[in-house]
């Protein structure tokens, strides 16, 4: 005799259910993040010299292309919200004192929002040719200074 498990009968509740959208977000962003992060890891760690090729000039070269700008901003926002919501789930499970739980959840979202702002600002206001020292860093690895920093 096999055990028969009845189909759960959850009532349909009217109105906006934030937890439902959180649940859906984790799955939707998860699928996208698999693609974005695998691509990120491949481009940065597998190609060429891997980790040893990464420096200021490498990032400047990547962010010269709108393709990687969009890739990185999308990854930044999706990953931070995905990670924060996952941590919120753990806090909800393990924090037993209500005020501590609430404080931690607030803290998580504040950190998340702060890092999204910092990340977007860093990427959108990035200038590879800010001053003489950054230009010298660009030239260090033979990056094409002329291409990245057109003479004004």
């Amino acid at each position: 005799m096999s055990v028969v498990i009845e189909t759960p009968r959850s009532r349909k509740r009217p109105g906006f259910n934030l937890e439902k959208y959180g649940w859906m977000y984790m799955r939707l962003s998860g699928v996208l993040l698999v693609i974005l992060i695998f691509g990120h890891l491949f481009a940065n760690l597998m190609v060429g010299e891997g980790i040893h090729a990464i420096n200021f000039a490498f990032v400047a070269g990547k962010w010269a292309s709108p393709f990687w700008q969009v890739w990185d901003v999308t990854m930044l926002v999706l990953a931070l919200i995905h990670g924060t919501n996952g941590m919120r789930t753990l806090v909800n499970d393990y924090a037993e004192v209500e005020w501590i739980r609430r404080t931690l959840v607030w803290l998580l979202w504040i950190v998340c929002a702060t890092l999204i702002v910092i990340g977007i600002l860093a990427l959108t206001t990035f200038t590879p040719c800010g001053d003489a020292s950054s230009i010298s860093l660009l030239g260090k690895d033979g990056a094409n200074v002329a291409a990245l920093c057109p003479v004004k």
């Binding site: 200021f56 400047a60 890092l115 910092i118 860093a122 990427l123 020292s133």
Partner: peptide, 13 residues
Amino acid sequence: HVLDTALVRIDPA
């Protein structure tokens, strides 16, 4: 990782 990458904007060296 977000913080260390953000350094490219304020302090390339």
